[in-house]
Design a protein around this nucleic acid. Structure first.
Lengths: 133, 133
DNA sequence: CAGTATCCCTCATGATACTG
DNA sequence: CAGTATCATGAGGGATACTG
C-alpha cells in the first residue's frame, strides 16, 4: 500500500498553501488594498481629514454599510484614524495615519502603471476576443 | 412634487459610480492583479517559461480549474503567452509577455511596502482587537 | 449626523469527474 | 499532459429599515 493517495497529497498541499497565502505579506496587503472601496477612500482622505457624510458624498455609490465596514477595517489596520467629537449633532472625522500616507506612493506607482498600460491590455483583450468569439 | 426622490438620486449616483469603477484604470488593474492566483503565477513565470504541470506544482494548492481560468484571463489581457507544441503527449508553455514583465517592478514595490509595514499593520490590529473585544 | 441590524442574492472559488 | 464540465457553497456586497 502507498503511504498516501493522490487526493491526500493534494489536500496536504492545499492546506500548506492556504496557510502560506494567509501569511504572505503581499497577499495580505493586496487583499486589504483591493477591497472595492479602499482605494477610493484612501484617495478621498489623501488631502486631509473628512467627515463621514463627506466621504459618503465623495465616494458616491457606496452604501452606508460598506462605508462603515471599510472605514472600520482601515482603522483596525492602522491606516486611518477615527475621531469622535461629542457634540449635537455628533461629528466624526476620519484621517490617514502616517502608515496610511506611506501607502500613497505605492498606490501612485500602481496608478502610473495602470494608466500607462491599460490601453495595451484593452488592445490585447480585443485581439483575443476577436480571435476566439 | 419633487423632481426625484432621495432613493432615485442615490440610484443615479450608484449607476454613475459603477460605470466609473468599471472604467477606472487603477481599479481594473487592481482587479486583475488581486485575483487570488495572479501574483503567484506572475511570480512563478518571472524566471522564464513554465509548462502547465510545472505551474500546478509550483503554485501548490491551486485547482486545475482556477489555474486554467487564471492563465486564460492573463493571456487575454496580454500578460502571458500560451504556446502549444503539437507532440505526444501535448506540451504547452506559458511565458510572460513584455507587458507582463513590466508589471514585475510594480509588484516588487508593493512587496517592499508590504514587507516593510506588515508588522505595523499586525500591531495596529492587535491593539484594536485588544481595545474592542 | 453617524451609524446598526437584517435579509437576500450573486458571484467567485473549489471539489469532483470526465476527455482529446 | 493539459485541459473541460458540472455541481455545491459561502462570503461579499447591496437594499432597506431602524437608532442614539
Amino acid at each position: 500500500m502507498s503511504t498516501s493517495t493522490a487526493a491526500q497529497r493534494r489536500e496536504q498541499a492545499k492546506v500548506a498553501y492556504d496557510a502560506y497565502l494567509a501569511n504572505c505579506p503581499v497577499r495580505r496587503v493586496l487583499d486589504r488594498v483591493s477591497d472595492k472601496w479602499v482605494i477610493l477612500l484612501l484617495n478621498a482622505l489623501a488631502d486631509g481629514p473628512r467627515r463621514y457624510a463627506e466621504l459618503r458624498r465623495i465616494v458616491a455609490g457606496v452604501s452606508e454599510k460598506m462605508l462603515t465596514q471599510t472605514l472600520r477595517s482601515l482603522e483596525r489596520d492602522g491606516l486611518v484614524t477615527r475621531t469622535v467629537t461629542a457634540s449635537v449633532p455628533a461629528r466624526v472625522d476620519y484621517a490617514l495615519t502616517d502608515l496610511g500616507m506611506s501607502l500613497l506612493p505605492v498606490m501612485r506607482a500602481l496608478k502610473a502603471w495602470a494608466e500607462a498600460h491599460i490601453a495595451e491590455i484593452d488592445a490585447a483583450r480585443a485581439d483575443y476576443d476577436r480571435a476566439q468569439p
